[in-house]
């Protein structure tokens, strides 16, 4: 009987979703639907990269230097085996892009999650507890906010680089990068969540819960947290785009992921050296892949922000 009831509520949820303004504004805009599809495509392709990629660019046995610097298949000398051509080592560009997107997306998601947990946690505490702790957290946030995120990520990464010997560094480089980008992004979450928490805290449903006797931390988690998720979702989406760009930038500058596990940024950097010799495809295709991904995520974030903002309706 309970099962039956539950299934009804789930159906209700779907019904509500179909009726909701969010779903309506989603289906109304083909650009947004396309962006969602592109993002989804990236996720699927990168998760199943070993199954989908035509070649394994890191399997040294399968790489043949004779295949080096082949152009895309539609140009003279191009081969259908390598749709988007090969790089100077004979690696298939399409496959390196797929594996590179995998690294880029991993770093992007991981650092967003890191920022989100840190920022939402500190924001909730700051807003709900208030007092000196709040003042301290917000002071730190203010100072950090006056420095651009990319600079902070660069510094953290540079610091780790100088602290760790090179051979160790390559092993943990990916996680250092996640930490560096994550730590540079928490302020946005913390400030928004703090502001929202202050608003929600003053609302009467929180006072009603206190009158019932519900304890502080339960109120924070059960009542306030669910009501601050809307803005957090918007920030997280936009932050994902920023994190992917930041990672690509750091890798492009040569301080990101090690060349053994290239991300899109690394691929662009490697290809940049061949730009002048006319082998543009080595750098342009990873660039296009990067922009397409970031653009799709940005479009989603932009739409989400407008759709969730009641004032804009």
């Amino acid at each position: 009987m309970t099962e039956n009831k539950n299934s009804i509520t789930i159906l209700d949820y779907f019904g509500q979703m179909r009726d909701s303004d969010l779903w309506f504004s989603f289906t109304r805009s083909p650009v947004i639907v396309a962006s969602a599809c592109v993002t989804l495509l990236y996720l699927i392709v990168t998760i199943f990269a070993p199954l989908i990629a035509p070649h394994d660019p890191f399997d040294l046995a399968s790489i043949d230097l004779l295949d080096a610097s082949l152009p895309p298949f539609w140009m003279d000398d191009g081969e259908l085996r390598f749709i988007l051509g090969t790089d100077d080592q004979g690696r298939d560009i399409l496959s390196t892009i797929i594996y590179g997107s995998r690294i880029s997306l991993f770093v992007g998601f991981a650092s967003v999650i890191f920022s989100l947990i840190l920022g939402v946690g500190l924001g909730l505490i700051s807003g709900y507890v208030g007092g000196r702790l709040d003042a301290f957290i917000m002071r730190v946030a203010d100072v950090q906010l006056s420095f651009p995120a990319i600079l902070i990520a660069l510094l953290v990464d540079g610091l780790a680089r100088t602290l760790l010997p090179r051979e160790h560094h390559d092993e943990v480089a990916l996680y250092v990068l996640v930490f560096a980008i994550g730590i540079s992004g928490w302020v946005q979450y913390a400030r928004t969540v703090r502001g929202q928490t202050l608003v929600e805290k003053g609302k009467e449903y929180v006072q009603a819960a206190r009158v019932i006797g519900i304890r502080k931390w339960t109120i924070l988690l059960r009542h306030i947290l669910p009501n601050v998720t809307g803005p957090v979702l918007v920030i997280a989406t936009i932050h994902l785009a920023i994190a992917i760009i930041t990672e690509a930038t750091l890798s492009f500058l040569g301080v990101g992921v090690p060349p053994t596990t290239p991300s899109l940024g690394t691929l662009i950097r490697i290809g940049n050296d061949f730009l002048f010799s006319g082998e543009w495809w080595i750098t342009i295709f990873p660039g296009v892949a990067l922009v397409l991904l970031v653009l799709a995520v940005n479009l989603l974030g932009d739409w989400l922000r407008d759709a969730l903002n009641p004032k804009l309706r």
Partner: peptide, 22 residues
């Protein structure tokens, strides 16, 4: 502008170099 926000600075530079330089 959305395209602009989605284009990393270094990529803008590379594209400019490719077109106007190379």
């Amino acid at each position: 502008s959305l395209v602009g926000v989605s284009l990393p600075t270094f990529l803008i530079g590379i594209l400019l170099i490719l077109f106007f330089g190379v």
